[in-house]
């Protein structure tokens, strides 16, 4: 019992797993903050349309934000300063300079933006916000970082922050799958037809392909498969064999979303979570292959 408990929370893992997540989520947060720049005036500043409205509880906004400290501030300047600080901290997090502090600042900026205007936010923003929270708790600086270059750190680190990330990923899929059982279009299998002809979501004109009864049946089967796979995702992770096939399905699913739908960086963000589901041997294998490549090139 004690050994299971220790394995679950304190088993040493390769530091590369956190490093990969830090680089991916630092980089993505940096891109997202850059993309927020055109919205600063109208969506986040006090001079924007929200004015003095604070804590939008009916859209799950929280009670605190740097944007709410505005007594003696020129609010547009503050709004720009917050975003620029976010861009800088996310970039430093990506390259691994004072990694945990910069992950904390990036999380602080994410929360401030989310709580200021949750009406503008979506699932991709929620994942980035949550991942910065988990990364600031994790030893994400020990590898592939400026910190590790300056000061040698252990390449074996504790697993408990990774368990939080794994639970978060399982929760996203499980709840998404469960909610789909309440949707008429997911249950009758017509959902992908709608997605393919939706002017806002679809990248391609899908009217040509949804006429065929065979394709309609295939799309319905695919919709049911995705719904069920999402619901059972946490269970499928428990066994090494079902985990591998589940990860493969996930990669194909998100690549499919990337090719067919306008969801900003959402499919890339979901794929960026997958290093948290891979085993240690995967990272060791990659490193060994890289060593071989370097050796051969010499």
């Amino acid at each position: 019992m004690k050994s299971v408990w220790n394995y679950l929370w304190f088993n040493p893992i390769d530091a590369k797993q956190y490093a990969a997540l830090r680089i991916l989520f630092g980089g993505l947060s940096c891109v997202y903050f850059l993309e927020f720049l055109p919205y600063v005036d109208s969506q986040f500043s006090r001079l924007g349309w929200l004015g003095d409205i604070q804590q939008i509880a009916n859209q799950n906004g929280g009670s605190w934000s740097i944007f709410f400290i505005h007594e003696n501030w020129s609010f547009t300047t503050l709004a720009y300063a917050v975003i620029v600080l976010g861009i800088l901290s996310a970039f430093l997090m990506m390259i691994g300079w004072k990694s945990r502090y910069t992950a904390f600042i990036t999380w602080l900026i994410w929360v401030s933006l989310w709580n200021r205007n949750p009406l503008l936010m979506d699932g991709d923003d929620a994942i980035l916000k949550m991942m910065c929270f988990y990364l600031m708790l994790s030893p994400c600086a020990n590898c592939w970082s400026v910190d590790a270059y300056i000061r040698k750190a252990s390449q074996h680190v504790v697993v408990w922050p990774l368990r939080l990330i794994q639970f978060q990923i399982a929760l996203i899929y499980f709840v998404s799958g469960w909610v789909k059982f309440h949707s008429v279009e997911w249950n009758d299998g017509s959902i992908i037809q709608y997605v393919l002809i939706h002017p806002e979501y679809s990248r391609w004109n899908g009217w040509g392909i949804i006429d065929s009864p065979l394709i309609k049946s295939l799309l319905a089967g695919l919709a049911w498969f995705i719904r069920d796979w999402e619901l059972f995702f946490p269970v499928l992770l428990l066994n090494p064999y079902t985990r591998r096939s589940s990860i493969l399905i996930g990669v194909l699913f998100h690549l499919g979303l990337l090719l067919t739908m306008h969801l900003r960086w959402f499919p890339v963000i979901m794929l960026s979570l997958y290093p948290a589901l891979l085993s240690n041997s995967f990272f060791t294998g990659i490193e060994n292959k890289l060593k071989h490549v370097r050796h051969d090139s010499k």
């Binding site: 929280g62 929360v111 949550m130």
Partner: peptide, 15 residues
């Protein structure tokens, strides 16, 4: 700040 919701496309569907 752990607020999150995962109701993608359901029930507010792309219909």
């Amino acid at each position: 700040a752990s607020q999150q919701y995962w109701d993608f496309f359901a029930p507010q569907s792309p219909k």
